[in-house]
Design a protein around this nucleic acid. Structure first.
Lengths: 204, 204, 204, 204
DNA sequence: TATGAATGAGCGTTCATTCAT
DNA sequence: CATGAATGAACGCTCATTCAT
């Protein structure tokens, strides 16, 4: 959690050149495995997914699960946090492309919504689950990065007349927060089409 | 709750036009009270709202709760069903206004989405909750009525050029199904504005 | 069911010559109906038969059921008592036949066991159920009559050398108490055959 | 409970010949304790013995009870199964004695019934309880062993003229199934005497 | 550090019993 | 007298969490 950021957001001591893969490596593998299993089970069955089942699905014992996440809420928060992290990355990349002139800001915003729609699938449940359990996951840092990049993106899109002139970051969040992420493709595609006119500029 | 059909959709004075309210009257009151409490608690805590708590919130004992709704799923289904019923009524009234020339079809569709947004508040959760428990509430009749009226409304709106020419009933349902019903007013209003362009005709 | 000793062992006020059959007649009918329903349900499902179900099966409301039998235990006791009453009658008739020379005492004892085996069917459950609930049904009077008649029967059978010389009333009770009353016919018949040698005299 | 296979039919020292008893040892003790408690309570109160009470009587929490027996039916089945196992062993030993000439077949059959009468005590109830809950305990293997040995025993007894010539294994089962196992000694002894003539040969 | 047995509060549901009508 | 809605203790069972090994 202090370097690289791998799947579970944990540095992997590639070291320990000789001997068993060290306790630490196991722990890292376990953590990733747990988060993966959680995402899957929570998607399928919501909050009702039991800690015991998650542990089994992750191939560890409950005790190990609890060593990594002292509470069910913590576990759920971890899943949500990771998702926000991924989103932030997507936006930053989009902004990078626009900055170096290789993409249109307006189009990138549209693309971002589509991507978010896709990525949210499965985590929507996690989000709801987290909310239910009263979790206050620490987006902060990742969210800040995402917001900043998105703001720049939108400003650029508005300036070019491509996007609706009064569009804000909050608008995008609202839309993404209430998108049909777990619905069949037809619904998701149609929703994107219904949404688009509201994002584009009057003369677009 | 102020109209002819009361909150529990049951006529109160079966016979005995005057005289004591009888246990029967209590029962009716209880049923309404239970549904009200359920809507509230489920909104707050989702499926995890316990039957015992719902009962207490409704001011009855568990047994009474179960006399009215033999299963948690049944209870949730009842809440959802009632909500669909209300929606159906709203659309039918809208169509009636349009038919007698006292309103514009396009505007009524827009208004309906706004109204649905408002009414969905609190029931969104119930709907999700019901889904979680595998409930298959019997919308059928009410839903059929709603769909038919909405179809007419949309057709009229499209014919007048006011609505997007390829708009369908399903589109409205998608939007309503994923609206920020439980969010603060600002969010709800903004969402409506973001959505509007996607519903209106190109030359609107 | 309206005269003599009726099914529920209650005298029926044949009176009330004119007018509705009087509350009393209804009550009598209800009581009989309840006992019948109880016997059936308890046979099928044991103690788990619910008071509510029994009431419904008897065609009355729970309240009525409770008016007749203030407790589930009371209801069960009534069924058991009635069964003992029937047994007592059977033995008394047997003794009457022997006394007037129209039957052999030993054979009558054998016949009685067979009959008891048959009659116990279905009530075995009631008996067990009653025991479970800690009922102490008031056999006393009927049991006393039965015991006295059976004693005479056995004495006569022993005197004639037909029955095992040390046979007692208690012996018969033991056998009847632990007979395969609810088993298929083959089992019941075979049991009677296995039992017989133990009842007959050495030289029989 | 004093023989090789312990009360729970489980070998205690899996590995670790010496050292701390480990939770595993506790688990084994718990299982035995649970079965013991179940047998006692079910004898006293039949199926109505609550899981919670059984747990308390066994000195464990409900959760532990359920870890060992996922269902009340399973628990009851375990008790019944263990009983059948014990019976099977008794018969096999009897046959072994007869085979090596150290005992008379007829007498062993009689002895077996007596022993079964004794051992059934307490489990009769469990059996009935299990039946009530629709359990289909897996006697199969143990029962098969018992039946085979008993068959040989009976055949030998018949050949020697000691036992009733048409006696079958089923006959013994019938008798044992309906014996006064939970009654006071006098009753049990008397019942054995009443039964004996039916099992012995005509000229015995 | 990983394991998994143990714990016990809590959940959905049932049912004997009461009592206003 | 009959009715049936209401009550609430109790039951079978689950599951987040702890802790001895």
């Amino acid at each position: 959690m202090t370097r690289g950021t791998n799947d579970a957001g944990e540095r992997a001591t590639t070291g320990a050149a000789r001997g068993a893969p060290s306790r630490r490596a196991d722990a890292v593998r376990n953590r990733a495995s747990i988060i993966r299993a959680t995402r899957r089970l929570v998607t399928e069955r919501g909050t009702d997914a039991a800690m015991g089942e998650i542990a089994k699905a992750a191939g560890v014992a409950v005790g190990t699960l609890y060593r990594h996440f002292p509470t069910k809420a913590d576990l759920l928060a971890a899943v949500v946090t990771q998702y926000v992290e991924t989103l932030a990355q997507a936006i930053q990349e989009a902004w990078a492309r626009v900055e170096q002139g290789s993409a249109d800001a307006g189009q990138e915003v549209l693309n971002f919504v589509a991507r978010a729609l896709e990525m949210t699938s499965g985590n929507q449940a996690a989000k709801a689950a987290a909310r239910t359990l009263g979790v206050q996951p620490e987006y902060s840092e990742a969210e800040a990065r995402a917001t900043e990049a998105l703001e720049r993106l939108i400003r650029a899109g508005c300036d070019s007349g491509r996007l609706r002139s009064d569009l804000t970051v909050a608008d995008i969040y609202i839309l993404v927060a209430f998108c049909p992420s777990d619905s069949p493709v037809e619904v998701r595609l149609r929703w994107l089409e219904l949404i688009r006119p509201g994002l584009l500029g009057d003369g677009a």
